[in-house]
Design a protein around this nucleic acid. Structure first.
Lengths: 209, 209
DNA sequence: GTTTAAATTAAACGACTGTTTTAATCGGTC
DNA sequence: GACCGATTAAAACAGTCGTTTAATTTAAAC
């Protein structure tokens, strides 16, 4: 008995798919309502604006991911951080748990994050930091504890390099996966990509100056 | 005797500045012609289309940078590559030499590259690979020579992480620099950013699996 | 069955985009 | 000075976008 989705959920589902595939700005409300098979005006009726729709799509994932991440960071902080890789590993399970929202939840969330940061979505950044800024702070503290030899400035830059590498790969993820599959015959799931990413990032963050 | 610029050059200069600051898609022809103080229609008259203008802006930098990079990669290849950092260092001088085109040439070029890859500019990617694909190939060969312990697949992914980190930081460069200056009192020039980036990337690429 | 609010629909709005058209002007040549 | 191609100028074009309006339908409460 496939549940009949209400208009609001049909919009959210269509939007998250298109946003992840094409980014926020390249996706028009007409595309979304076309796929969702609802009227154009219903987006503004149910969500108020496109901005608000974007935030609603993100929040569904944020609110599932962030608390999970925070739990693991707190645990790690308590028992003491000894390596950068430890910190990054805290991301794995929370990311994979997003598959409960959607079978492709992990890559969708990462894609959305990627587009949120590569497009100029100031309102999203503010929105995220307001709601989950403390998680970001805790993450930073953990990385710092793992790398006491690095100055705050160096850490600042390296974390942004980290963010950049992650984000970019997710945005170009589909295209890259196709190339990788053609060239190396390997299908790269979101999980595989994370596994490949972590050693790279950990080594980069902890690199000597 | 400040040389009076012809319309075509006024457009190119205004376009490269705005493209670097805002990206290609967020920059309208009306913005460009407004700053350049020329008529809107002159863009299509002199360049044919916005796409063609984008390529013209990129080519000015590509044609200055790519041959310089190639020279250094060939030299390095001849004397034998022993470390990843060696390969990345080949980028420094060619990047800095772009300041002859424009005092901010280095960061403008990197910004343009960033936007070219984070926006979906398929035509630019094709254009670049057609003209300078051999340089990319040589770069790949050098990295491979420096890291014989890595599989081609691992290398493929790590180079894209590398690209991502570089690109992202350049796109968000201005915003990040401002934060860094506020928090750590350091002004981060394009040169500084490259110097911070290379150890991070080199360690990431060469990391153990 | 009537009432009332919620939800859906079709249509238009106003603002923006890249591009094209048509006419006016500029610069150099005979 | 008259000609002529190259350049500039103002205006309109055709398309897309997010949003709003006003009318209609649906669904639940009484």
């Amino acid at each position: 008995m496939a549940k009949v989705l209400k208009t609001k959920d049909k919009i959210l589902n269509a939007a998250e798919r298109l946003f992840a595939e094409q980014g926020f700005e390249h996706t028009s409300l007409r595309q979304i309502t076309g796929i969702a098979d609802v009227n154009l005006a219903s987006v503004n009726y149910h969500f108020g604006s496109k901005k608000a729709l974007i935030q609603a799509v993100m929040e569904r994932y944020h609110s599932a991911f962030m608390p999970e991440l925070d739990i693991r960071l707190v645990e790690l902080e308590a028992k003491g951080v000894t390596s950068t890789e430890q910190v990054l590993n805290c991301f794995i399970e929370p990311l994979l748990s997003l598959q409960r929202i959607n079978p492709n939840g992990t890559s969708i969330y990462l894609s959305l994050l990627g587009h949120a940061y590569s497009e100029i979505q100031g309102h999203l950044r503010r929105f995220t930091m307001q709601n989950f800024g403390h998680v970001v702070q805790r993450f930073l503290a953990c990385v710092q504890q793992a790398n006491p030899h690095l100055t705050l400035s160096t850490l600042f830059w390296r974390l942004h390099f980290t963010l950049g590498a992650t984000v970019f790969v997710q945005v170009s993820g589909q295209a890259l996966s196709e190339i990788a599959e053609a060239d190396f015959g390997e299908q790269a799931s979101a999980q595989d990509m994370i596994a490949k990413l972590i050693p790279f990032l950990a080594a980069g963050i902890a690199a000597p100056v």
